[in-house]
Amino acid sequence: MKNDSFKWVLAVALGFAAAACGSTSEGAGATGGTAGSGGASGAGGTGAAPDAMGYVISDFGFLHPEADPADFGMEGVRGFDLDSTVSSADTPPCAHDDFVAPDGTPGIDYGLWSFLRQYEPLQKDQLIDSVIRSAVKNGEMSIVMELGGVDDMLNDDAVTVQIFSTQDSPLVGTDGEVLPNGTLARHPDPLYHSTIASGAIKDGVLEAGPFDVSLKFFIQIVDADMLLTDSWIRLDLGDATASGVLAGHWSVAQIDEIIGTPTSENGEAAGFNHTEFLAAMEAADAGYDEASDECTAFTTIFRLEAVPAFLTE
């Protein structure tokens, strides 16, 4: 049966589970109830923590190393060495090759790329990438972020980062891009507040982690949670924007729920069927579970851009 509804096809392409997903078992402890309750505010400085800076995510998606030809292959991936090991395909468990950062740092983990790179709809500006990019602008997956303890935007040895879902939509300008200085409320459910990452700013680049990031989204008909555990974030702090990457561990079970499981026979719209998907999941590079002797997660890198915003409760 053909279904000519574009939106519906998109939904299928994303492999929507019909039911709303709760947080996964791995989410235990991921979202501290106290983390989101601070009275911090945005750059306007009317709140309790004048050194806190709010942002709203203005662009988001899987990192596509091939976007820059120099990044293709195993080099030039601006991620993190999440397992603190320069791995290779012959070092079990969860054997995998690592990428190399642009500055030559080896050991960069991005296991999911081995899957993502195979399918056209998942590439930059293609179907699913476009859906995700618009989702952060149109309110389907609004994300805000707070930097704490920032005394110096160039060099500061003690800062914090916290990421929140929000039920508000960012303001969008005539150019279709997210506008700065909007006001958005952190998600009322502390489940969707990340833990607090600690880190530092060096030469205008912030790095912080590890922390667990839990996001709520409702993209088209997909109502889902996404949890990234033991994540790290790196941000270039500009005058008006912040851009960088968020790298962490994403469970195979959740990837399956959100991307892998087709909801109908049209489930191949993303370019793969569930059998192929499950086969690809064998390449999981993290989350080794001794009991089952299985690798249960992929290291994943998202790229993100953010503009200043005011955060409220």
Binding site: S41, G42, G44, T46, L171, N181, T183, F310, T312
Partner: peptide, 8 residues
């Protein structure tokens, strides 16, 4: 947002 003040 234009006044750059929090107003939700």
């Amino acid at each position: 947002s234009v006044y750059a003040v929090p107003f939700g």
